[in-house]
């Protein structure tokens, strides 16, 4: 008995091996690169070469930058709003989609909403500049025909944050919806049957059966996404922002990118990366602990 079990486990472990190797090679070994955050790194001298150690100078360089608080604030606001809406909207959408009877209609809708996920921000950036244009864009033409003043969504610092948040959620919510739909199909149909027998209507079923059935996947995705609190989406902002909206649109990643443009600055870039990783680690740990304490959720 024992031998059989062991050999069964062995093959499972072997299957895990490639993933483990990838993880070690591409995630654990590169962690050694953290030392760059404390060096005045010159690539020509080599990673193991005689680099100059500068202590916390790279962190100081970033923290004393006059724009750092503005940049941090923008990052937090944009990322937090994206995380919140990026959780709520797909959950609601998945639940409602699940209630649709016609499967052809349901599938078409599902495909249509996740299509934007496959478009790159380079492409979407150009499209958004056109459709959000205050003079010729379709959105503002609609606003004008309803009697409102046109809004310069991408040019006005006040509107830039809401615009990037909403367009990002629009682009990605269809994709996350798929995960939640998968969770819904995993719910035991007998639960719905007993709910019906107990006299629950469709809405009641949604609240009392579907939603609790999804709670595990919701908790997991929430915990994972909280780690992204400092990732406000480089690709998107980079393709949409400009000097006119730096005050509300400049985020950590675009800021560091511009820093790197002047000179190949490995030190400060590594310092920012390390800072982001530490914040993510703390937030993920705390939220995982909370989920365990209050929702009895755990991965292991």
């Amino acid at each position: 008995m024992n031998v059989i079990k062991k050999s069964k486990n062995l093959s499972l472990h072997l299957m895990l091996l490639p993933a483990m190797i990838l993880l070690i090679v591409f995630s654990y070994i590169p962690m050694a690169g953290i030392v760059i955050a404390f060096q005045d790194f010159i690539p020509a001298k080599g990673f193991l070469g005689n680099q100059e150690w500068v202590g916390l100078k790279n962190f100081e360089l970033i923290s004393t930058n006059p724009f750092v608080y503005r940049v941090l604030q923008n990052t937090l606001i944009i990322a937090f709003a994206k995380i919140l809406l990026g959780l709520a909207i797909p959950i609601a959408f998945a639940i409602f989609l699940n209630e649709i009877r016609s499967s052809a209609y349901k599938r078409t809708l599902q495909t249509l909403v996740y299509l934007p996920h496959f478009l790159s921000w380079v492409l979407l950036g150009g499209i958004l500049i056109d459709i959000l244009s205050p003079s010729t864009g379709i959105v503002n033409n609609l606003l004008k025909s309803l009697g409102f003043n046109p809004i310069f969504f991408l040019g006005d610092p006040k509107w830039f944050q809401p615009t990037v948040i909403i367009t990002d959620v629009w682009k990605e919510f269809g994709w996350s919806t798929i995960l939640y739909l998968a969770a819904i199909t995993a719910i035991n149909p007998s639960l719905y049957e007993s709910a019906k027998i107990d006299g629950a209507g469709r809405f009641r079923q949604m609240i009392s059966v579907t939603l609790p059935g999804m709670s595990m996947i919701i908790a997991m995705l929430a915990i994972l996404s909280i780690g992204n609190i400092l990732n406000a989406g480089f690709d998107q902002i980079f393709n949409l922002y400009h000097a006119g909206v730096y005050e509300t649109g400049d985020i950590i990643d675009t800021f560091v990118y511009r820093m790197g443009l002047i000179d190949a600055k490995f030190g400060p870039a590594a310092a920012v990366g390390l800072f982001k990783s530490i914040v993510s680690l703390i937030l993920i740990t705390v939220s995982y602990y909370c989920a365990y304490r209050f929702a009895d959720y755990r991965i292991f």
Binding site: L61, N65, P66, F67, H242, A243, G244, Y246, E247, D250, F255, R258, M259, L261, I262, D263, K265
Partner: peptide
């Protein structure tokens, strides 16, 4: 330049466009 250059160019492009 490599420490502060990006700060200065941010300052410049923001001021000019405004």
């Amino acid at each position: 330049m490599s420490d502060k250059g990006s700060t200065l160019s941010t300052l410049e492009s923001e001021a000019f466009v405004k």
